[in-house]
């Protein structure tokens, strides 16, 4: 079951929340100068899939904990995931302030945690997240769902890659080069349930309860959660700064090193840029 994330041993554990068995990973770092980072993955993801690069690279500098979201016994809502993340934080990092990082659906979850537990979420990073599902997302979600129901796995995988990666990224590659990404798409029932949760997201009323130093990261070529959503979060969260990465929604695969820079810089010094700043994109 174990996945190999770093060269050094990572502690793996499991806890039960609402009947869901949750796995978490902890790099167990004692340097302790920074708040531990807690990572929350996105739709149909996991620590291994979405943070296979970021977890170990962030862990070269500080403690990192990651949650694999699980399917609860009862109804699945955004608050099921919120309780799961809170439970892992309380279990692993009791009494500590954390830097919570969420990607995609994980960003939505992270925002709800930050609103619910402002006393422990000192810093917050929302990557390609959103506050309220809009029509563009609903149309994509419906097509996705029709393909899923049809049982045409191939078409579903192609559609997923088509939407997930930025158009410059896809356009610059041959179909052969994209084949591994298409092959890697694997939808479980739990994944499909998360797609249903995505349809009804509306956390607009909670955003003003977030007090954390927040970094909102939008993806320039995001077709799944267009960057205007990130700009909305930037506007709605009082203590937020914003930056953009020239990538599609699949930034954890397309530009993981750049994402690493943004998260690591922020974790090292969340106050470097005052709230309201648009941090310029790096020009190498």
């Amino acid at each position: 079951m174990g996945i190999v994330l770093t060269k050094d041993p990572v502690v793996e554990g499991e806890i039960l929340v609402d009947g869901a068995s949750l796995r978490y990973y902890d790099s167990m770092d004692s340097r302790g100068e920074r708040n531990p980072i807690v990572l929350v993955h996105g739709t149909t993801g996991s620590t291994a899939v979405h943070y296979g690069y970021l977890f170990p690279m962030l862990a070269t500098r500080q403690r990192v904990v990651s949650v694999d979201l699980g399917q609860p016994a009862g109804e699945l809502t955004i608050d099921s995931f919120r309780r799961q993340v809170e439970a892992v934080i309380d279990h692993v990092l009791a009494g500590q302030k954390v830097t919570l990082v969420g990607y995609s659906l994980g960003a939505v979850v992270a925002a709800t945690v930050a609103a619910d537990r402002p006393e422990i979420i000192e810093n917050l990073v929302l990557v390609a997240g959103w506050a309220k599902t809009d029509s563009q997302q609903l149309l994509r979600n419906s097509v996705w769902n029709a393909l899923y129901e049809s049982g045409n796995k191939d078409a579903l995988a192609q559609f997923t890659v088509f939407c997930a990666f930025g158009n410059p990224f896809v356009g610059a590659r041959t179909l052969d080069e994209l084949a591994p990404a298409i092959k890697a798409v694997n939808v479980t029932e739990f994944g499909a349930a998360q797609m249903q949760v995505n349809r009804d997201i509306d956390i607009v009323d909670r955003l003003d309860k977030i007090t954390a130093n927040t970094l909102v990261i939008g993806c320039e070529f995001d077709q799944m959660v267009p960057k205007r959503h990130s700009k909305d979060l930037f506007g709605a969260i009082e203590n937020a700064r914003y930056t953009e990465i020239p990538s599609g929604h699949a930034v954890v695969f397309e530009r993981p090193a750049e994402l690493h820079k943004q998260i690591d810089n922020f974790a090292a010094d969340p106050h470097r840029h005052p709230a309201g700043t648009i941090i310029p994109t790096v020009k190498p």
């Binding site: 190999v4 994330l5 770093t6 060269k7 296979g52 170990p56 070269t60 090193a257 750049e258 190498p284």
Partner: peptide, 15 residues
């Protein structure tokens, strides 16, 4: 950033 990605090899990241 494509080249930067490969720094992870120098850290011996299993993936």
């Amino acid at each position: 950033w494509g080249m930067e990605y490969n720094y992870a090899q120098r850290r011996g990241i299993p993936k």
